[in-house]
């Protein structure tokens, strides 16, 4: 057997898909990096949304709960970092970390009573949370500057080192996204992650094995809030401007689309979905005034033919035997 045969045999269909996907995204990233311009901004935003979606995936994918209000924590992150940097002159990195801490504490306070609800009730409660935060960001003008938004937010950096070059911003965001994915993957296959996935299948079944369902749901909610806050802060530092609209209802719709296109409950799905759903409007832009229709059609086709998301494509036709060592 040649070494080539050995590698191909070991890879299998799923391996081919993984390697192919990695090469595709590496080439895409290189193309965007070299070409620059508007695509660079699109990719930067995709990375930021990707971070948000990784968190959303913790709560919706791994734990199987519905939340339409994670944008509230992105707003906390965005405004937190803006106020701390612009008003108090904090270093961006410390402002980002502090905003995440604030969002984490807020998510515990909000999540404790809210997560007693289930299903549609939980979805509606979290939706209300997003709406309330939006209203606060509009009305509390002394802090948020209302519809005018917050400008002059410094780029990411620490001390004399700031990341002002757009290409370096993209590289920095990609590193953060990959780190977020790594953490997500590690947690998913840990004791903690298995408990979350058990809750996703059956809350009663999980409780019957000794899992404290309420505590784990809260933990997943907090983790989702931390990721959301980080993405809000990153948006503020990368774009330099935030307004209530950035964290409004549009964000909920866009991130849901990304999560389902990429694959809810999978490790890579949030990143894949964020990149594909961000680039798709650019791809269909050539259809002119039909671009919205083309975009919607493309999404519908994806959801019909790949209902488990693009990152689950490699599993099509695969035997139902898990990868060796999975879940260890």
């Amino acid at each position: 057997m040649t070494s080539r045969d050995t590698i191909f045999t070991r890879l299998g269909r799923y391996g081919y898909f993984a390697v192919g996907g990695a090469i595709f995204f590496a080439l895409l990233f290189a193309f965007v990096f070299v070409r620059g311009g508007y695509l660079l901004t699109v990719m930067q935003l995709a990375m930021i949304y990707g971070v948000f979606c990784i968190g959303l995936n913790f709560f919706m994918g791994y734990t199987g709960q519905a939340s339409f209000g994670q944008n509230a924590f992105a707003a906390l992150g965005g405004y937190g970092t803006a106020v701390l940097c612009v008003q108090f002159g904090w270093e961006p990195v410390f402002a980002l970390i502090a905003s995440m801490a604030i969002a984490g504490i807020a998510s515990v306070i909000v999540g404790y009573p809210t997560l007693r609800l289930r299903g549609h009730y939980l979805a509606m409660a979290t939706f209300a949370l997003g709406l309330i935060t939006y209203d606060i960001s509009v009305q509390w003008t002394s802090v948020t500057q209302g519809y005018m938004g917050y400008s002059g937010i410094p780029p990411l950096g620490i001390g004399p080192f700031t990341i002002e070059d757009e290409r370096m911003k993209l590289v920095c965001l990609m590193v953060i996204l990959l780190f977020g994915l790594w953490v997500s993957g590690r947690l998913r296959n840990s004791r903690f992650g298995r408990a979350l996935r058990a809750i996703s299948t059956s809350e009663l079944g999980a409780a019957a094995l000794g899992i404290n369902v309420a505590r784990y749901k809260l933990a997943a909610f907090v983790i989702a809030a931390l990721y959301a806050s980080a993405s809000g802060s990153l948006f503020a530092h990368v774009v330099g401007f935030i307004s209530p609209e950035v964290f409004g209802l549009q964000m909920v719709v866009v991130t849901f689309t990304m999560l389902y296109v990429g694959g809810v409950g999978t490790v890579l799905g949030p990143a894949v979905g964020a990149i594909i759903a961000s680039l798709l409007p650019e791809i269909v832009r050539s259809t002119g005034r039909f671009q919205d229709i083309a975009y919607a059609l493309a999404l519908i086709v994806m959801l019909i033919y790949v209902p488990k998301g693009l990152s689950a494509l490699g599993g099509l036709g695969r035997s139902r035997v898990a990868e060796p060592g999975a879940g260890s």
Binding site: R191, A195, R197, G205, A208, L209, G210, A326, G327
Partner: peptide, 27 residues
């Protein structure tokens, strides 16, 4: 410990993962 009617397994997880969840309390 209760084995529920209909088994109550976590169907998308492997046998190994299901068993590990059984030992959840052992940390």
């Amino acid at each position: 410990i209760m084995v529920q009617e209909g088994r109550g397994l976590f169907g998308e997880m492997t046998v190994y993962e299901n068993l590990l969840l059984g030992a959840y309390n052992l940390g």
